[in-house]
């Protein structure tokens, strides 16, 4: 093992955490990936975090929306980080 991508190979068929651009996070089983970090994840939970400013109190409201997707191809150029869970 020498390169970072070699490490990801060990995560095939494991559940992984993927942080993406646009405050998106994915958790799912890694089925495949390539050198661009394109990926296919199974049994995916996506969490999108958005913040709004309350007009009256000026307070930040953090909202997390999650959804489940059975099988998802993720384009590598949005991937920021990949880790084991």
């Amino acid at each position: 093992m020498e390169e970072p991508l070699d490490l990801i190979r060990l995560s095939i068929d494991e559940r992984v955490y993927v942080k993406c651009r646009g405050d998106r996070e994915l958790r799912g089983r890694l089925h495949a990936y390539d050198q661009h970090l394109n990926m296919i994840l199974g049994e995916v939970e996506e969490t999108v975090t958005s913040t709004e400013i309350d007009d009256e109190t000026d307070e930040e409201i953090v909202r997390k929306q999650t959804r489940q997707v059975g099988m998802l191809f993720v384009r590598g150029d949005i991937v920021v980080l990949l880790g084991d869970i």
Binding site: I12, D13, H31, A32, I40, G42, V69, G70, M71, L72, F73, V74, R75, I78
Partner: peptide, 17 residues
């Protein structure tokens, strides 16, 4: 493209891995 949702029943995950 950001994501592509695929019908899981058409995916042979073992083959893919």
């Amino acid at each position: 493209v950001r994501y592509i949702q695929i019908p899981p029943e058409h995916v042979d995950t073992e083959l893919l891995q």
